[in-house]
């Protein structure tokens, strides 16, 4: 196991197209890091630079105490799980898992022992003789993980490994990944665009936007104190409401809004869409004409609120209040958080 650090890492595919604009991060030995961001923001590119599948245009990546910029993937002591699993279709599960070990010249007994152990952990023992095409999506996913863990590498790299699974299996595999990490304690970098995956798996996460790290921190910390309007809007479902107020942006999460009497109203919303989810109900609408106590500005802004299922939600005017302790402020020009 090893620590990983990225220092001002940049990537350009062509001279006029930079896709990673200087990302820095120190990852502690054994940490589980999630790289989160929308499609095309450069998550895979960043991961592939750590793997050695893309060259590093500028900056430095170290694994353990070695700078790996110029090392081949095979010399970096990493293992990677691909989104499409990338299993060798012509080899049995056993051969898939042992391929890397054979190349590294381990003894037959050693290989067989390691594969058996990994297969036990991943409940693949029954399938060792099968070809990948005779496995279900979830089983293939496990073989891909097995191929990574038999190598006992310093770092695991995952590029959206769960995105091809159905919703139920994804939840299950998420749990298994957590268990696996507790058991092996290997430093892991996990790329996803799914915020639930990120929130549940990450010890710390790095939220990326257009090739920049917008925020690095523990999931709940990122949730509680988004550093920019991008993070505020990306994390949370529905995302944080951003309402122009006094030349700044007021951020308030849908779950922090509650219905109230006209007299107490801090926002007055013209509800036009209701989504009952069972446990609670989402209502969406525009802020109406200034009115009520706090209705000083932001008319027309779109707002979502998460109401308890007991509230009888209807379209039309809905007065809402919030606790001022739950409010975030952002600078509209830079999008940065304003503390205080």
């Amino acid at each position: 196991m090893a620590a990983v650090s990225l220092r001002n890492v940049r990537k350009s595919y062509t001279s006029d197209l930079q896709v990673i604009h200087g990302v820095s991060m120190d990852i502690a030995d054994g940490e589980f890091i999630v790289i989160l961001g929308p499609s095309g923001c450069g998550k895979s590119t960043l991961l592939r630079m750590v793997a050695g599948l893309e060259t590093i245009t500028a900056g430095e990546i170290t694994i353990g105490d070695r700078v790996v910029n110029n090392l081949e993937p095979k010399d970096r002591d990493i293992a990677m799980v691909f989104q499409n699993y990338a299993l060798y279709p012509h080899m049995s599960v056993y051969d898939n898992m042992s391929y890397g070990l054979r190349i590294r010249g381990l003894s037959k007994e050693d290989i067989s022992q390691r594969v058996k152990k990994a297969a036990d952990i991943l409940e693949l023992s029954k399938f060792l003789d099968r070809k990948p095409r005779a496995l279900s999506g979830g089983q293939r996913q496990r073989v891909a993980m097995g191929r990574a863990i038999v190598r006992e590498p310093q770092v695991f790299l995952f590029d959206e490994p769960l995105s091809n699974l159905d919703a139920k299996l994804r939840v299950q595999m998420r749990g298994e990944l957590q268990a696996l990490h507790r058991r092996l304690g290997t430093t892991s970098l996990f790329v996803t665009h799914d915020q639930v995956e990120a929130m549940t798996l990450a010890q710390r996460m790095i939220v990326m936007n257009a090739g920049r790290a917008e925020q690095i921190g523990a999931p709940l910390e990122v949730y509680a104190k988004p550093a920019t309007t991008f993070v505020a809007g990306f994390i949370g479902s529905p995302p944080m409401n951003l309402i122009p107020r006094d030349g700044k942006l007021l951020g308030i999460r849908p779950e922090h809004l509650e219905p109230c009497g006209e007299a107490e109203a801090m926002l007055s919303v013209q509800v036009d869409l209701i989504e009952p989810l069972g446990a609670d109900t989402l209502v969406y609408g525009h802020i109406g004409d200034p009115g009520g106590n706090g209705g000083n500005g932001g008319a027309g802004a779109r707002v979502a609120a998460r109401l308890h299922a007991s509230v009888d939600a209807r379209t039309g005017r809905l007065p809402l209040r919030y606790d001022t302790g739950n409010v975030h402020w952002f600078d509209p020009a830079s999008g940065k958080r304003i503390e205080g």
Partner: peptide
């Protein structure tokens, strides 16, 4: 042949020649 297969083999430690004979050639059979 998906690129990721070749990349997986590279990470597994196979050089270009070995990748060709153990992954690419069998898939072209």
């Amino acid at each position: 042949i998906p690129r990721s297969l070749i990349e997986a083999a590279a990470i597994d430690g196979a050089g270009p020649t070995r990748r060709f004979w153990t992954v690419v050639f069998p898939l072209l059979s």
